[in-house]
Design a protein around this nucleic acid. Structure first.
Length: 584
RNA sequence: CGGGAUGUGGCUCAACUUGGUAGAGCACCUGUUUUGGGUACAGGGGGUUGCAGGUUCAAAUCCUGUCAUCCCGACCA
């Protein structure tokens, strides 16, 4: 049966709803695909549900093809398994928690690692059972501090989550590759533009980790790519380390008075005004020492100083990734009070020729350096005295550090780590994530199987996610014009959209007959059989965005209908007899 | 959690500065009209102005409190 607009539960809106900011969000609301039920929580209307179902079907087909098996978990889960993995507390405010009538704690699943792990543990106990890969396509719940852009970042959302279980690392590698391949097929079939970037495995404690990002100016993730094909999340970019240089013949380190130079800009200005050397000093000649406070998961606070070239800032995300699982924040006034030897604005590695920073130094504070600060490089840095800086301070000759911290910002033009050219920065929306979880959850929940030798082995896991509802938003964002949506054929709510226009009943009869013929060929049809003016019908057709529109009206006199390509805008007359064959 | 903005029929907004008892467009209902680009006309239904308190003869409007939503940031498998 065709979907008839005369009876479809649909009301298109002429104006943009005030609640929406992002184009895809506005259009999905205006075209009657979704309605907001609560912040970050959406109701799916018939058209939206049709698109969501198309996306899910493609994901399901490719998961099955990759040998994964579908299961379905409750969304409402007891506290205990999450207690065992520590996530009842780790998840913090992002977890929707509730209690039953007996005051027992429950949660709405933000993800299902624990349940997958326990399910396999429940039923399997031999290496012969492995490998196995299970998946789900379900609603997830996260109490996001700030839901964004409609479906893009909701508090209730649909994810496909898959988990692989293997005995060996090689097995995991194979399972990972199978999922990664499936992801490429899925996104290709959906017609989504994507890049695969190296990601920081970070908090989840895994090893290999890659994200699938769909490039978009409204994306929340920043990634880099090079002309030679390198791509990575900014958190994962490794700075190219320059060759160490010979310090022979470099001038000796000298302390100079540099009054009122507690910022890099003022220091550079002062150096150029008072210590000209036939070249212009700039921020890159200075070594900025940033004091950070780390807070461990147990709540222990410690300071670390990071020396980076003065023309760069610390990237908070890279710092979090580098120092995880610690929390990172700039040192506070209270921190400085506890370390009077750190003179704000004039911090440097040495004081009076002796180490100040570093575990061996006077301040006994861990000191880490940006990878660019290699032996033989010469710097202007603080002298640890108000109003004084050291010039010609040479790494390796005059100072050293406890290690490296690669947390400075990545900039457009920086070289790619693999030598494939200068990096460019871009924004993307994370639509998929694959990574090798390893044994963390299996360990925490005791998932072990017997190997050939009858010995217990902890299983190793992979985790693979796709944001299904987010994909609907990504597809809408990427496929639209100023008139409305333009769905790719793979996810369109219908294959053909028939507009019947004319006052004579015969046009509606012809349209109905056409619809039946299309459906007989396996094509789904939306039929605009409303008794409204043609302008309304055309605007709604554009708004709703089915890629193939058939106009059944005036041309009937000559036995013709028009095929209107929504994407190209092109219209061409086709004979009534050939249109079905042409489009089917 | 920090900063900003906004709450008025289903939707988009006006009236608030300068208090006088709520209005337009869209949507909806009825009739006529129109039928390849949101047709025209006439009539109609629908709002305790987020909530609570206060000031006042009188509050959408002024004051206090509160709740909610949106945006930026922080946060974020």
């Amino acid at each position: 049966m065709p979907i008839r607009l005369s009876s479809l539960f649909l009301r298109t809106l002429r104006e943009d709803p005030a609640e929406a900011e992002v184009e895809s969000h506005k259009l999905l609301l205006r075209a009657g695909y979704i309605r907001r039920a609560a912040p970050g929580v959406y109701t799916w209307l018939p058209l939206g549900l049709a698109v969501k179902a198309k996306v899910e079907r493609i994901v399901r087909e490719e998961m099955n093809r990759a040998g994964a098996q579908e299961v379905f978990f409750p969304a409402l889960l007891p506290r205990e398994p999450y207690e065992q993995t520590g996530r009842w507390t780790e998840y913090g405010d992002n977890l929707f928690r509730l209690q039953d009538r007996k005051k027992a704690d429950y949660l709405l699943a933000p993800t299902h690692e624990e349940m997958f792990t326990l399910l396999v543990k429940d039923l399997y106990s031999s290496y012969k059972d492995l490998p196995v890969c299970l998946y789900q396509i379900q609603n997830k719940y996260r109490d996001e501090a700030r839901p964004r852009a409609g479906l893009l970042r909701g508090r209730e959302f649909v994810m496909k989550d898959a988990y692989s279980f293997d005995l060996t690392d090689e097995g995991l590698e194979k399972s990972y590759q199978a999922q990664r391949d499936a992801y490429e097929r899925i996104f290709t079939r959906l017609g989504v533009d994507y890049v695969i970037v190296k990601a920081d495995a970070g908090a989840m404690g895994g090893s290999a980790s890659e994200e699938f990002l769909s490039p978009s100016p409204i994306g929340e993730d920043t990634f880099v790519r090079s002309p030679g094909g390198y791509a990575a999340n900014v958190e994962a970019v490794k700075t190219v380390v320059p060759k160490a240089m010979n310090s022979d013949g470099l001038p000796a380190a000298t302390v100079h008075d540099t009054p009122n130079t507690n910022t890099i800009d003022s220091l550079v200005d002062f150096a150029n005004a008072n210590h000209g050397r036939g070249h212009v000093w700039n921020a890159a000649h200075t070594l900025k020492n940033v004091v950070l406070a780390l807070t461990s998961p147990e709540g222990k606070r410690s300071l670390v100083v990071v020396g980076i070239p003065g023309d760069r800032e610390v990237d908070a995300k890279r710092a979090e990734a580098a120092f995880g699982p610690n929390d990172v924040e700039p040192a506070t006034d209270a921190d400085f009070e506890r370390h009077p030897e750190l003179v704000k604005g004039y911090i440097g590695p040495v004081k009076n020729g002796n180490p100040l920073l570093g575990l061996e130094g006077e301040a006994k504070v861990r000191y880490l350096l940006d990878p660019r600060v290699v032996d033989g490089t010469s710097w202007i840095s603080g002298a640890n005295v108000e109003g004084k800086h050291v010039f010609d301070l040479v790494k390796g000759r005059d100072f050293n550090a406890d290690g490296i911290a690669d947390i400075a910002e990545v900039r457009a033009g920086d070289p790619a780590p693999d030598g494939s050219g200068p990096l460019e920065l871009a924004r993307g929306i994370e639509i998929g994530h694959v990574f090798q979880l390893g044994r963390k959850y299996a360990q925490a929940l005791g998932l072990q199987v017997l190997d050939e030798n009858g010995k217990l082995q902890t299983v190793t896991m992979g985790s693979y996610g796709i944001g299904v509802t987010r994909l609907v938003a990504v597809l809408a964002e990427a496929n639209r014009d100023d008139k409305g949506l333009i769905w790719p054929e793979s996810v369109s709510p219908a294959d053909v959209y028939i507009v019947a226009t004319g006052k004579d009943d015969s046009v509606f009869e012809h349209a109905e007959r056409l619809a039946a013929e299309f459906e007989a060929k396996g094509k789904s049809v939306i039929l605009d059989d409303r008794k409204v003016s043609p302008g309304i019908k055309f605007s709604d057709a554009e708004l709703i965005g089915v890629p193939h529109i058939v106009i059944c009206g005036k041309g009937l006199e000559n036995g013709e209908v028009d095929h209107w390509n929504r994407r190209s805008g092109e219209r061409r007359a086709l004979s009534l007899n050939s249109v079905v064959a042409e489009l089917a």
